[in-house]
Design a protein around this nucleic acid. Structure first.
Lengths: 226, 226
DNA sequence: CATTGACCAAAACGACTAAATTGGTCATCA
DNA sequence: TGATGACCAATTTAGTCGTTTTGGTCAATG
């Protein structure tokens, strides 16, 4: 495991637990078993590491989803998409705080004028466009308004990572909720008649691949020496 | 308009705008055009006013939803329920911060051991039970897991009042999203075959009535002199 | 020459205090 | 007698200033 990797791994834990401010460079180097100097050989700054962490986590999230879909029997369907998306979210605390723009975690970092969201926020294609393409290949019913549906999906994502801290009643097991929500979305948006999933499957795989490639490009730019 | 009402009205605006801490009793009396002494004739304390405000707002929210359903052509259906629930949420900033447990608004108040949520949190029947009853009268398909569906609905509510501050892309017009989401939920949970909505309509009306009555009882307890 | 950690300026923190505000009361007024 | 606002104790704020900690550097090292 490379130096940068060990730092990234330590960061993933520390940033989520302590937040950006409370996590000091010394904490990171100590946890990673690396000297302070080495830190600055691997990353240009504390910010740089943080941004690399977020980008890498997003990439890994997409990659995991893509792999899960590769072996998913109903890959291409809305339901399958939801299943892997939520399961991945459930597995990645970094993605959760990222999606939530968790203030406790991002702290002052968010106030920086050139923070992650402003720097890397654009560029990815919106969920509306994705839905439109899925509609073209028949896995989304023709009568659904893709922009509205996209917004609902965003809303659900945000809700997914936020309910727990707001709700008092305990949530049902995550796996059940995932299955239920996937089924609901399939019913809500999916076609009435069964369709051939192959084209959608290929389309989705391509979109994931593009997303991953884009993130890799950003990562290459974000990492590197001081 | 009674003194208490004017204070409540001023509070609804000020608490949401400034939050609990920043809103002083003097602010409230000034905005309501009432003397400080009168304040303590109408409410036992600042806390008391705040809690009365929250309870009243919840009651008004339910009452408005009930009235809207009374003239709604598809009242009784899941879709109609969603329509009025979200439209009401859209109209009431207090309900929004309440649902979000907005820290910026509730501030230190939440740390009090006997705050609103602990004091009045219990008592209302859970969404799971509501769904189960709706299932019994046929407007929710028999195969849906009501607890999971209830959790998804909670998640959507929280997402509804939270997305905006997290999302960067502009949301479609609220009315469109409401219509879309209502349709989606109807498809996701509603019966495949058309059913007679009358029983569900009556059931829902009764449940709203009970909820309103419960809140009125709590209000009676919460208001009153020092 | 890759790696280190002692070192530095700058920023954050913390203990302290004086001044200002707060939620709440009550003698007074109309 | 219902309503008022000057008033009070208690808390919060804003300011000060010495101490500590921070992100980042670079001469020394193996």
């Amino acid at each position: 495991m490379t130096r940068a990797d060990r730092l990234l791994r330590a960061a993933s834990d520390l940033f989520v637990r302590l937040g950006y401010e409370k996590t000091t460079v010394s904490d990171l180097t100590r946890a990673a078993g690396v000297s302070k100097g080495a830190f600055y050989l691997a990353f240009p700054s504390k910010d740089g590491l943080f941004e690399a962490l977020l980008l890498r986590e997003m990439r890994d999230y997409l990659a995991a989803a893509r792999e899960a879909l590769a072996v998913h029997p109903r890959a291409g369907s809305i339901g399958a998409l939801y299943e892997v998306a939520l399961r991945g979210l459930e597995a990645s605390p970094v993605m959760a705080v990222l999606l939530r723009r968790d203030r406790d975690v991002f702290g002052r970092y968010l106030r920086q004028p050139d923070n992650f969201f402003r720097k890397f926020g654009a560029g990815h294609q919106s969920r509306g466009e994705v839905l439109a393409q899925l509609q073209a290949v028949g896995v989304v019913r023709p009568d659904v308004d893709v922009d509205v549906a996209a917004h609902v999906m965003n809303l659900i994502s945000v809700g997914w990572v936020t309910v727990d801290e707001v709700l008092d009643t305990p949530a049902p097991p995550a796996e059940e909720v995932i299955a239920g929500l996937a089924a609901m979305m399939e019913r809500a948006l999916g076609p009435t008649q069964p369709v051939d999933l192959a084209p959608a499957r290929a389309l989705v795989d391509r979109m994931y691949a593009e997303g991953i490639a884009g993130l890799n490009a950003m990562l290459a730019q974000a990492e590197g020496g001081p």
